[in-house]
Design a protein around this nucleic acid. Structure first.
Lengths: 116, 116
DNA sequence: CGTTAAGTACGAGAGTCATCGTACAAGGAG
DNA sequence: CTCCTTGTACGATGACTCTCGTACTTAACG
């Protein structure tokens, strides 16, 4: 339900960097953390918008909020309010446009070397 | 292995992680710094072994030593003593084997987005 | 309306990081 | 041998990060 005009958030909007403003170092830094890397991995695998609670991360809610903010501010994910939840989506198109191949390479590398 | 005998360092040898031990997060972290990223960029462009002093980095000598160590310990570069200087080489083959495409993608992204 | 679920805000604490300056070691040039 | 260049070692310092718990906001559900 809650369909109709806006699929999601009515008034509440979050700040996201523009595609052209994505900074490589910032993205790399966002990806250089095991918790965040696993979030990105799940988002990429499912290709869906997922609420924070769908990730079963080994950290507290506060820490969770922190990591999602880092990802959002780096431009890796897009967050949209939807009722009491907040949906997270990978900004694949923007990342691919700005840093072609980066996401795929990192995701592939993560899967192959995940034992380390 | 234990290379380094012929061309350069006589006795002094530095610790480098094995190819199979390169950790993605560690490499990403090493690359997520402007100073280190520029070092990697220069090494990739020239394809040569260069002494630390050839980089004209905007930091002090001590900081310079620090950054090169981070790169070496992440497995991004290989360092060899040669007289009073220390030559730095990009470990392209190892990186490409372990994380195919990563280096090229990052370097390409860096060139296009270097304005940020 | 009251309850519950999902996140946020706000500190706070421990740890790591980037930076520096100064003192030191080692090899090459004169 | 003496000096100079190159880089290391060793703190020290300030900033940022990751982590947490508790209190609060917001929306759905009955």
């Amino acid at each position: 339900m809650t369909s109709g005009a806006g699929t999601a958030a009515p008034g509440r909007a979050l700040a996201h960097p523009d595609r052209e403003q994505l900074a490589l170092e910032r993205v790399l830094h966002a990806l250089a953390d095991p918790v965040r890397l696993s979030v990105v991995g799940v988002l990429a695998e499912t290709g869906e918008e997922l609420p924070c609670s769908a990730f079963a991360l080994p950290v507290s809610k506060s820490t969770c909020t922190h990591h999602f903010r880092v990802l959002r501010e780096a431009g890796v994910i897009r967050q949209v309010y939807r009722g009491t939840a907040k949906l997270n989506a990978l900004r694949r198109a923007d990342l691919d446009a700005r840093f072609p191949g980066l996401l795929d390479v990192v995701l592939t590398a993560r899967r192959r070397a995940d034992g380390t």
